[in-house]
Write a protein that binds this DNA or RNA. Structure first.
Length: 104
DNA sequence: AGATTGACCGTGT
DNA sequence: GACACGGCCAATC
């Protein structure tokens, strides 16, 4: 089943997040096959080799809050998202509008 | 092999 | 709405 590591799966999924949308850590965990592994997802993002191939800035907490970004901090992360047209409410993403929804 | 850690999440007060 | 607590999973020491 899992020939590739959990981390690898997370990366693959993260790359599918469309521009202008965001996904939550829990959401990715669920998609990767471990619904409760949100923390592990966070680690994967932290260890991610390159932001240009893995859009880790499109991953936010379940409440839309921006947490962590290893390529310049929260500010940079927010700027990138704003630049992509993600809807913000103060410092949190409006998930109602900008969450990545996998339409059946 | 065991313990610790971390870019989390849900629930209760 | 803010704060505290516990649980969860994979990677790392």
């Amino acid at each position: 089943m899992s020939i590739i590591s959990f981390r690898q799966r997370v990366y693959t999924i993260a790359q599918q997040i469309p521009k202008g949308k965001v996904a939550t850590y829990g959401q990715l965990a669920k998609m990767a096959g471990s619904p409760r592994a949100a923390r592990a997802v966070g680690m994967s993002m932290k260890c991610n080799p390159d932001a240009s191939i893995i859009p880790c800035h499109r991953v936010v907490a379940s409440n839309g809050r921006l947490v962590g970004y290893a390529f310049g901090g929260i500010q940079t992360k927010k700027q990138k998202l704003l630049n992509e047209g993600v809807a913000f409410i103060k410092d949190t993403v409006d998930l109602n509008v900008s969450q990545w929804r996998v339409t059946i």
